[in-house]
């Protein structure tokens, strides 16, 4: 299986993506996956159009991307976290 590239993005690339990034790192470790995680600003996503397999973001995106986009707000509020983790895992295991 090729190494998946996961983008973790928020508006500033400072606060919320840091928290989400760490949650995903933990998941990846727990499931022993080999994943390339990039923490970026949402404005930088376009630069990864050709390489990324998944975007996990707390920011809203109007653009369409060739890879799935998962909303990560639940990592911040604790509401629906398990569901979000499942979604992410499903994408990583594809």
């Amino acid at each position: 299986m090729a190494k998946k590239q996961v983008l973790v993005a928020c508006g500033a690339g400072i606060a919320t993506s840091t928290v989400v990034n760490s949650a995903i790192e933990e998941m990846v470790k727990e499931h022993q996956l080999d994943v390339d995680i990039r923490q970026i600003k949402i404005a930088e996503v376009s630069a990864y159009t050709d390489t990324a397999d998944l975007l996990v973001t707390t920011a809203m995106t109007k653009k369409e991307f060739p890879f799935p986009v998962i909303n990560a707000r639940s990592f911040l509020t604790g509401i629906g976290t398990e569901e979000t983790k499942k979604q992410i895992l499903n994408e990583l295991l594809k």
């Binding site: 928290v19 990034n21 760490s22 923490q39």
Partner: peptide, 11 residues
């Protein structure tokens, strides 16, 4: 990309 622990506790 800093202050992870603090942000996690805030969340």
């Amino acid at each position: 990309h800093s202050q992870l622990a603090l942000l996690q506790r805030l969340m």
